[in-house]
C-alpha cells in the first residue's frame, strides 16, 4: 500500500503547497483581524441598555450562528453579484470569514467584558474617560487577556474554515491539495500534505497565543519610557 504513496509528487508540488499555505496564512490573519473588529462592535452593541443596539446585534449573531458558513459564503459569492455587488473572490472570502467568525467572537468578548469587575468601569468613568477611551485603555486590554484561550480556539476554527474558500476558487492550501488530487489522481498525497500544514499552523497559533498572553500578562518590572 505504501509503495503507491508518492513522496516525489508531494515534493514536486511543494511550491504550490507553499503558495497555498502563504495565502491561507494571510487571508486568515486578515479575516481574524476583521472578525475581532466585528466582534468588538457587536459585543459593545449587545451590552448597551438601548434595544436599538441590542436587538440588531442579537439578530445578527443568531442568524450567523444558525446558518452554515458554506451557505453564507455562497450567498456572498453568488448572491451579492445578483444584487449588484461584484467583488473579487478573495474579498468575498475574507468578508465571509470575518462576518462569520465575528459573531462567535462577539459572544467571547461580551463574556470577557462582563467578567471585568464593575469597579474598573467606574474608575474610568470617575477619571473623566469617555466610553470609547475607557474601553480602549481600561476594559479591552483586560478582556483580551482573559479571552486569549477562547479567541485562540476561534482562530483555529477560522483557519480550518478558510478551507471552504477553495470552493469559490481561492488558491489557498486546500485548493492546492485538490489540485494534486485531481491532476494526478493522488488524493491521499494531496490531502495528507495539507493536513500536515494545517497541523503546523495550529502549533504556530498555539505558540502565538502563549507569547501574547505573556506579553499582556503581568511582568515583574518594566521600564516605562
Amino acid at each position: 500500500m505504501l509503495e503507491n504513496f508518492s513522496f516525489r509528487t508531494i515534493i514536486e508540488y511543494l511550491p504550490l503547497f507553499g503558495q497555498g499555505l502563504i495565502t491561507t496564512v494571510w487571508l486568515s490573519a486578515l479575516s481574524f483581524a476583521g472578525a475581532l473588529a466585528v466582534g468588538v462592535v457587536l459585543a459593545a452593541m449587545n451590552l448597551q441598555r438601548s434595544q436599538l443596539f441590542r436587538v440588531p446585534a442579537k439578530a445578527y449573531i443568531d442568524a450567523v450562528r444558525a446558518t452554515p458558513l458554506l451557505a453564507q459564503l455562497y450567498f456572498l459569492y453568488f448572491g451579492l453579484p445578483r444584487l449588484g455587488f461584484v467583488l473579487p473572490e478573495l474579498v468575498v472570502g475574507i468578508l465571509a470569514l470575518s462576518l462569520n467568525s465575528g459573531a462567535y467572537i462577539a459572544e467571547i468578548i461580551r463574556a470577557g467584558i462582563l467578567s471585568i469587575p464593575r469597579g474598573q468601569v467606574e474608575a474610568g468613568v470617575a477619571s473623566g474617560m469617555t466610553y470609547v477611551l475607557r474601553m480602549r485603555l481600561v476594559i479591552l486590554p483586560q478582556v483580551f487577556k482573559v479571552t486569549i484561550p477562547p479567541l485562540l480556539g476561534q482562530a483555529i476554527v477560522l483557519v480550518k474554515d478558510s478551507a471552504l474558500l477553495s470552493l469559490i476558487s481561492v488558491s489557498e492550501l486546500t485548493r492546492a491539495g485538490q489540485l494534486l488530487a485531481s491532476d494526478r489522481f493522488m488524493p491521499a498525497e494531496g490531502f495528507l500534505t495539507i493536513a500536515a500544514f494545517y497541523l503546523l499552523l495550529y502549533y504556530c497559533l498555539k505558540g502565538l497565543a502563549g507569547l501574547s498572553s505573556r506579553w499582556l500578562g503581568l511582568q515583574p518590572a518594566r521600564s516605562s519610557t
Binding site: G119, A123, A126, P141, Q142, K145, L216
Partner: peptide, 16 residues
C-alpha cells in the same frame, strides 16, 4: 468629572 477625584473602597486600580 476631571475636576473630581474619586477614591474607591476597593481601590479599583488598573491591574494591567
Amino acid at each position: 468629572r476631571t475636576e473630581i477625584g474619586f477614591v474607591f473602597q476597593s481601590f479599583n486600580l488598573y491591574p494591567h
